[in-house]
Design a binder for these strands. Structure first.
Length: 530
RNA sequence: GCGCCCGUAGCUCAGUUGGAUAGAGCGUCGGGCUUCGAACCCGCAGGUCGCAGGUUCAAGUCCUGCCGGGCGCACCA
């Protein structure tokens, strides 16, 4: 601050810093020390007992700790996954799902009013291609050139045939009818998979029903035409997106009379905007990034600022097994599905690993590593910290060690620097939630939790929490004699009083609460035992 | 060719909107369980933050240009 002021005040920053520091000293009931360091930093040391108030706050607020009013209740629509109902979810969708779920929770924690939505792309070429592929199983010569392959297509064909033989479905369905039936089957599978991933959506939005059947597409295009943003050329209908900064104008209806996907997306985003959200967030695969300017052009055309729409790009996932690349060929239908991954490594590990990188950077996902219950697997590291505290309290109960409320604890006994190392991150937690939410970056929380868990593990190793059981007390003195270890030495010197036990238990309980809170936002469970 | 993203320790990556001595994990090497959970801890080594300029009291962070990598540039989704 002093350095910023020096430009306008025309005085040396250190001089300004001294003045500010002097003023602060006058009312320093919360400050222990105020020092000025070159070139103009003001270092404030808050009184030690102030840190312990954080613990009381965590206990008082419980699950509400970390919540803020940053978002002021602004309504946010978060659309994610939105995979076409033409096949099962794969790893890329899983990453989008993990990021979206965590982001929704994060924004809610930061005081936003979030709705989640899945856009079902159940109209157009892809579902019809899928349907034709299903039909072609009976009659291979009719197989479409770029058709879908894979076991699930054969399964669908078999199911269809059975239904027809049983008279549930009539024979001689049109391709559109097959498409409708098959895509709804696949959508059910997708819903099941997302449930297995502990994700739910507030709304499932059907392109076919809610945009085409309802007439929303033609209405949206009419609106654009009336405002002069559409024109015809070469037999096609174009959206004049260059008016709003896009590189080129875009076709919304092709020469053959078919609408492009952009037509649906125009109608869809018009619908979203009309629903009155303050912010629209879409999570897309990174290969769609070229699509952003044109969608923001759409938003502007409808009279909204273009940053009303924010897009989070999620990069691809490289699937590995023991360091070796697992090849994924969509063409041959051999891609590893999200379901298979959840079954193999579990939803918690999958989610956490998806959230260990910024969304916009490529991610290596090693199945063997994700399964390992070891230090190499960050999920277990964090969960273990939580379980460890739970275990501690179980033992405390067994040994009838009294557990005090935060308000009853004598904090003066926590005189080691290690105590503050553990408390400081707890104090920073609310600010972390806010900044992560604002940046739309849930991975920051993942890193925070790993750091907090590390501090807890280190503290746990270094300091004894509970008095030993009675039968162990006698030889307690002799145990550590040979250890040259610094931490062991320190632990040996410490005398564990009941007040110290109570304070440390309380400290741990509050660390545990924050870990639980953070894991909850990530959508990962916080187990009592592992 | 144009546009977007990226380049930080041997590897994989963080770096809180421009602040002090750039941090983790893995890997290497060495050490630590007779206690409350070793699914853990401690230590050593490892850096010209791709390169070169610029803005600033201050740049990993902002600007420009190169080099290197990824992705887009459809009347496909």
């Amino acid at each position: 601050m002093a350095m910023n002021l020096s430009a306008t005040e025309h005085r040396a920053p250190q001089e300004i810093a001294e003045i500010i520091a002097g003023r602060l000293r006058l009312r320093s009931e919360v400050l222990e020390r105020i020092e000025v360091a070159p070139p103009g930093y003001i270092n404030l040391t808050v009184k030690r007992e102030l840190w312990f108030r954080v613990l009381a706050e965590i206990e008082a607020q419980g699950e509400q700790y970390g919540r803020s009013t940053l978002g002021r209740g602004q309504r946010v629509l978060l659309e994610f996954v939105s995979a076409n109902p033409t096949g099962p979810l794969h790893m890329g969708h899983g990453r989008g799902a993990a990021v979206g779920g965590a982001l929704a929770n994060l924004l809610r924690s930061a005081g936003y009013n979030v709705s989640t939505e899945y856009y079902i792309n159940d109209a157009g070429r892809q579902v019809h291609l899928m349907a034709a592929s299903v039909t072609a199983v009976q009659n291979p010569t009719s197989a479409p050139e770029d058709g879908y392959k894979g076991a699930y297509i054969v399964d669908l064909a078999k199911q269809l045939q059975e239904k027809q033989q049983a008279g549930v479905l009539r024979t001689g369905l049109t391709n559109s009818e097959v498409a409708e039936w098959a895509s709804s089957q696949l959508l059910n599978d997708i819903k099941t998979d997302l449930q297995a991933f502990n994700l739910r959506f507030d709304r499932w939005f059907s392109e076919q029903k809610e945009l085409f059947n309802s007439g929303a597409v033609t209405q949206a295009l009419d609106w654009l035409r009336q405002h002069g943003y559409l024109f015809e050329q070469d037999g096609a209908l174009w959206f004049r997106s260059t008016t709003f900064g896009d590189d080129k104008d875009r076709v919304v209806r092709k020469q053959d009379g078919e609408y492009t996907y952009l037509a649906s997306d125009i109608a869809y985003h018009r619908d979203k905007l009309a629903r009155g959200y303050d912010l629209l967030i879409n999570i897309w695969g990174a290969d769609h990034h070229g699509y952003i300017p044109r969608m923001q052009a759409v938003v502007e055309a409808f009279g909204y600022p273009k940053d009303r729409l924010k897009v989070i790009l999620v990069q691809i996932v490289n699937l590995l097994r023991g360091g070796r690349r697992v090849t994924m060929s969509k063409r041959a239908g051999e891609l590893i599905t999200l379901r298979e991954v959840i079954e193999e490594v579990g939803a918690d590990a999958a989610k956490f690993i998806f959230l260990t990188r910024r969304a916009d950077s490529q991610l290596d996902f090693d199945l063997e590593l994700a399964k390992q219950k070891s230090a190499e697997n960050p999920v277990y590291y964090v969960q273990y910290a939580h379980a460890r505290v739970a275990s501690l309290f179980r033992v405390a109960a067994e040994r009838r060690v009294p557990v005090q409320r935060t308000s009853e604890v004598d904090w003066s006994v926590l005189s080691s620097p290690d105590d503050l190392e553990l408390i400081k991150p707890l104090a920073e937690y609310p600010a972390l939630i806010e900044s992560s939410a604002q940046a739309l970056e849930p991975h920051r929380l993942t890193y925070y939790l790993q750091d907090l868990a590390a501090r807890l593990h280190a503290y746990y190793y270094k300091h004894r929490i509970l008095p030993p059981a009675l039968e162990q007390e006698l030889d307690n003195q002799d145990n550590l004699k040979a250890s040259a270890h610094e931490a062991d030495q320190e632990r040996k010197r410490e005398t564990l009083t009941p007040a110290l036990t109570a304070a440390r238990l309380c400290l741990f309980r509050n660390v545990q609460a924050v870990i639980q809170n953070g894991l909850g936002i990530l959508g990962v469970s916080a187990p009592e035992r592992m």
